[in-house]
Design a protein around this nucleic acid. Structure first.
Length: 436
RNA sequence: GGUCCCAUCGUCUAGUGGCCUAGGACACAGCCCUUUCAAGGCUGCGGCACGGGUUCGAAUCCCGUUGGGACCGCCA
């Protein structure tokens, strides 16, 4: 059985966007599933718009997502070079061959493929099934542009063949290009690869995902606080299902289950709400140490220096969040009061608690601070007893405490918060609001 | 306009002729838990675009209609 060779061939004219990442992901999945090779090729024949900087961010974006490749411009391989701009001789050579066979003709400096008439091109797409098109509906196609560089349709065929790519997996928008490319394979006498087209990803307005819709590159999502595991999982769900109602999985599980034949035909809408959910599920499964490292930059972004705080304390702070937060950004925001009293003071001035109420609560808070064993159960018991004695509800005590310690009306269990902050810090915050 | 593709809850999907009074997930609503919000548990809402066939039987096969989309560059 032949060894699977697939490729992802981005053009370095922008960052790695969601659509590209989706295509790269499915190629990667197929390569890893089949024990094949995943090749990265840079399609930089558009000299105007291609830049080295974009090439770098695309590679970095793929690494961030965890899509490692076996051959590429940075690591080489047996079928290089891996940038089209470095393969110009190759395209020229095969264009000459077509010219000699009289299957192409010149027009100025360009070379143009003469499309045969009365041919029916039929191919079997792994996802879409058999597709048929008549050759007379195809116009003669440019192979080599006047500036000497190859067009996409020519370069892709030459590269895929010479790089021994046997599965061409790409977006559905390329179905229409496939017959033109098949004609080139035929003209050159080359064997066809398998074709598998993937459904496109749409924005929430059901239009093709574009820059107008805000976040579009994978880095935008990273900066919003999504983690690679979440994006990976969510993207894999667009156009494919693992079966058995399994929707949350890691890359290893996905690899074991993936099957190109199970890919859906229908276009999929990129639903942020579902992304949030999937991301949250992966956040919950994250190793604590890694989670801490991932949250740090988001604390920093809101002016909190986590390096000033003990790691053990930080670890426990995140632990107390217990599933709260769908992104790293939210986790950082929800836990800010653990790192500093400043944000609490900024958002809460204590003016909603009257002097009368403060006077009534002071004895309770004094008793709380005087508690023998500084733990959750002791505090909860004290509060419960106090509330009963004074004819109050537990929340009459818990809410003012929550406001004073966190500056918010929502937080993790407030006694757990108090335990974690420690008696000195609790005293400081209560004193600030005149509650002791 | 031409060529090609698609069509199951709002969204992602399961479903490949009988297991479907169409299953799951997100979202939404309600309930439970509860010091708040989450998390978790339970319940509910909600769909085979339409019309013809084929068949004992169709979400599944065929045809048509309608609706979406892609492409029609010396961009990729």
């Amino acid at each position: 059985m032949e060894t699977v060779r697939v490729r992802f061939a981005p053009s370095p004219t922008g960052a790695l966007h969601i659509g590209g990442a989706h295509t790269a992901l499915f190629n990667w999945l197929w390569a890893r599933r089949m024990g094949g090779s995943f090749v990265l090729r840079i399609e930089d024949t558009d000299r105007q718009r291609s830049t080295e900087a974009f090439e770098k961010t695309i590679l970095a974006g793929m690494r961030w997502l965890g899509l490692d490749w076996d051959e590429g411009p940075d690591c080489g391989g047996g079928f290089g070079p891996y940038r089209q701009s470095e393969r110009l001789d190759l395209y020229r050579r095969y264009a000459e061959e077509l010219l000699e066979k009289d299957l192409a003709y010149r027009d100025g400096a360009a070379i143009i493929h003469r499309i045969p008439q009365d041919r029916t091109i039929l191919f079997e797409d792994i996802v879409y099934g058999s597709i048929e098109i008549k050759s007379e509906t195809i116009k003669d196609t440019v192979l080599i542009k006047s500036d000497g560089t190859p067009t996409y349709n020519f370069a892709v065929v030459v590269d895929d063949h010479t790089m021994a790519i046997n599965y061409v997996i790409r977006g559905e928008d390329h179905i229409i290009n496939t017959p033109k490319q098949i004609l080139i394979y035929d003209a050159l006498g080359w064997e066809l690869p398998h074709f598998a087209h993937l459904p496109m990803i749409l924005g929430e307005d059901k239009k093709k995902l574009s820059k107008r819709q805000g976040a579009t590159s994978v880095y935008d999502y990273r900066d919003l606080g999504y983690i690679p595991e979440g994006i990976f999982n969510f993207l894999a769900l667009l156009g494919w299902s693992a079966g058995d109602d399994k929707e949350i999985f890691d890359r290893h599980e996905a690899t074991a289950l993936f099957d190109l034949a199970k890919v859906a035909k229908r276009k999929a809408v990129f639903d942020m709400k579902k992304l949030d959910f999937v991301n949250q599920e992966h956040l919950k499964r994250l190793d604590p140490i890694r989670k801490l490292d991932l949250v740090r930059p988001f604390w920093e972004a809101i002016g909190l220096d986590s390096r000033l705080v003990d790691d053990g304390y930080l670890l426990r702070s995140l632990d107390l969040l217990e599933g709260r937060g769908q992104t790293l950004k939210e986790m950082a925001a929800y836990s800010d009061f653990f790192l500093s009293f400043d944000p609490v003071k900024e958002r809460y001035d204590g003016s909603d608690i009257s002097e009368a109420i403060k006077a009534r609560l002071r004895p309770f808070f004094e008793a709380l601070l005087a508690i023998g064993n500084w733990d959750h159960d002791a505090m909860a018991e004290l509060a419960r007893q106090w509330a009963i004695d004074k004819g109050l509800k537990l929340k009459d005590l818990a809410m003012p405490l929550r406001w004073a310690l966190t500056g918010r009306k929502v937080s993790p269990g407030i006694f757990e918060v108090a335990v974690h902050l420690g008696p000195e810090e609790v005293r400081r915050r209560l004193a600030h609001y005149g509650l002791i």
